[in-house]
């Protein structure tokens, strides 16, 4: 499904990684490993199309993602370092907008259910600025529940999450893989998904 061939990425004059090749199929989970500054975030951002690779190609269903553009974006969801939430808006309003942008016809009930699943019962209408860092992360991750995208690209999804939320994430990723999804993620915390062997990609 996702094929990366000979990908080279540099920031300014600094070469982050070169000639990287891997592929990801349905039901697979890939962890990108590497020390700080090894280019994990750059790799994920390049995957999404936020950064242009210096060389190499990314293919999705056999087609180059840079040529697919929006067609590819409709099939992926990216959770970055930044939560992508507006402080002044409530969790419900934030998710309503991101669902709208993704082109989903989502009603408030579905969003509420997703927020409840993320353990945010009673926080739906509270402006994001009143939530803790971990709760904000949970709101961001609730987007995964609302999106039907097969490819999840998660950059440090577990930041600021407590033990129960980490377990919940493992459960969500497990469900996603069973439902013919796939995921690429980076993390410095151990993340074990039951019944799935995590493939590792080490950046040096």
């Amino acid at each position: 499904m996702l094929d990366i061939s000979n990908l080279t990425c540099s920031r300014g004059d600094h070469l982050l990684f070169s000639d990287l090749s891997f592929s990801l199929s349905i039901g697979e989970l890939l962890q990108v490993q590497g020390v700080n500054g090894s280019g994990k975030t750059s790799l994920l951002r390049t995957l999404c199309g936020l950064m242009t690779p210096t060389a190499g190609e990314i293919r999705w269903r056999g087609q180059s993602t840079s040529e697919m553009g929006d067609e590819f974006h409709a099939e992926m969801i990216y959770v970055g370092h930044l939560n992508g939430l507006k402080d002044e808006l409530s969790a419900l309003e934030n998710l309503r907008i991101s669902a709208g942008l993704a082109g989903h016809k989502t009603d408030d009930k579905q969003i509420t259910v997703a927020l409840h699943r993320m353990g945010l019962r009673g926080r739906e209408a509270l402006p994001i600025k009143f939530l803790s860092e971990g709760q904000r992360r949970r709101v961001t991750l609730a987007r995964l529940l609302l999106s039907g995208a097969p490819l999840w690209v998660l950059d440090e999804p577990l930041t600021a999450l407590d033990v129960t939320a980490v377990e919940l994430m493992q459960e969500l990723i497990g469900e996603h893989l069973v439902n013919d999804g796939m995921a690429v993620y980076t993390t410095h915390q151990p993340l074990q998904v039951a019944g799935v062997t995590t493939r590792c990609l080490a950046l040096s």
Partner: peptide, 11 residues
């Protein structure tokens, strides 16, 4: 706050 990158990734 990262909402701009989400807008750019929206289809």
């Amino acid at each position: 706050d990262g909402t701009l990158e989400q807008m750019m990734l929206a289809p």
